[in-house]
Computed example of a mutant assay.
Amino acid sequence: MKARIAWAVASIAVGVVLVLLWQMVADLKLLPQAFFPAPDRTWKAFTRAAASGDLAPRIYATVWRVLIGWALASLLGVLLGSVIGSSPWLRRLLGPTLEFLRPLPASATIPVFIVLLGLSNAMVLTVIAFGALWPMLLGTVHGFEAVEPRLYEVARVLHLSRLLVILKIALPSALPDILSGLRLSLTIALILTVVCEMLVGVDGLGSWTLISARAFRSPDLYAGVLLLGIIGYLGATVLTLVSNRLLAWKTRSP
């Protein structure tokens, strides 16, 4: 417990030092203030936007898109990954196609989805779900593929149905890979949300930061970027806590 507290204090200290360095560089005017505002100016921009009531709806819109797109990708990724991962012949059949689609930048598909769905929230959610799908899908497939073969032999001896094999054997064994995919896909969902908000112009933190940049309101720009970082950090922290809880059995001594 003391070690955890010490590491937490050390992490906070690192953050404080970085903010102080940021303030020092800004005060010394080593960089143009128009493009590099000090932390106090950034904080004033944040409080001003929060007090005006314009910030909360933008935060809500961005977080809502991230969570909906990420949830769709996670659900579809686990379902498809379970079906593909539990079937050796499906893995061999679809493996090359999945490896072809996996590195395809989701941002490059935005024009395609604009043509199909128009400039709408449905298009934004589709892009987010498409980009965030692959870590979940491939993580689930890899987790199923790495299941101990003897467990499948036991399932055959017990005459378990395919559904029971997936629920009772494969999914618990693949859980570490699935949770890793969840964290990675959440990060991708946040990135794609910001990109779509910037390109499409729907209301959110992404469009706010872009408008601030075009208007040379650098404090507002930095406030938006910091808010996006905080959102990503909170999401990763929650998933880490959930992962530690679900995978506690791995750290227990036999």
Results as ranks from 00 to 15, higher is better:
56 A>M: 12
37 P>Q: 04
55 L>M: 07
60 Y>K: 14
87 S>F: 14
74 S>E: 01
51 A>W: 07
5 I>G: 13
39 P>A: 00
17 V>H: 07
12 I>E: 01
62 T>L: 04
44 K>N: 11
58 R>C: 02
33 Q>C: 02
17 V>C: 11
71 A>V: 11
29 K>Q: 15
45 A>P: 00
67 L>I: 09
66 V>K: 07
14 V>M: 06
44 K>R: 15
40 D>S: 13
49 A>K: 14
26 A>H: 11
28 L>S: 12
30 L>A: 12
53 G>H: 03
62 T>D: 02
39 P>E: 00
49 A>I: 09
35 F>T: 11
78 V>F: 08
29 K>Y: 09
85 G>Q: 03
5 I>N: 09
76 L>I: 13
85 G>P: 06
72 L>K: 09
51 A>E: 11
79 L>V: 15
53 G>K: 05
17 V>M: 10
7 W>H: 14
24 M>D: 15
58 R>L: 07
7 W>Y: 13
40 D>H: 15
64 W>E: 14
21 L>N: 07
78 V>H: 02
61 A>V: 03
52 S>F: 05
33 Q>S: 15
64 W>A: 15
67 L>A: 12
79 L>R: 11
14 V>D: 03
47 T>C: 03
34 A>E: 02
64 W>L: 15
14 V>T: 07
72 L>Y: 09
53 G>T: 05
75 L>P: 10
62 T>I: 06
57 P>V: 04
57 P>T: 06
32 P>V: 00
71 A>I: 10
15 G>W: 08
70 W>F: 13
79 L>W: 12
7 W>T: 15
85 G>A: 04
21 L>Q: 08
88 P>K: 06
7 W>N: 14
46 F>I: 03
74 S>C: 09
42 T>P: 12
43 W>M: 09
17 V>L: 14
17 V>Y: 11
77 G>A: 01
70 W>C: 05
26 A>T: 03
52 S>V: 10
45 A>V: 02
88 P>F: 06
35 F>C: 08
51 A>K: 15
88 P>M: 05
68 I>P: 00
49 A>V: 08
19 V>Q: 06
30 L>W: 14
38 A>G: 15
69 G>M: 05
75 L>Y: 10
64 W>G: 03
2 K>I: 12
19 V>F: 12
36 F>N: 08
49 A>W: 09
3 A>I: 11
71 A>H: 07
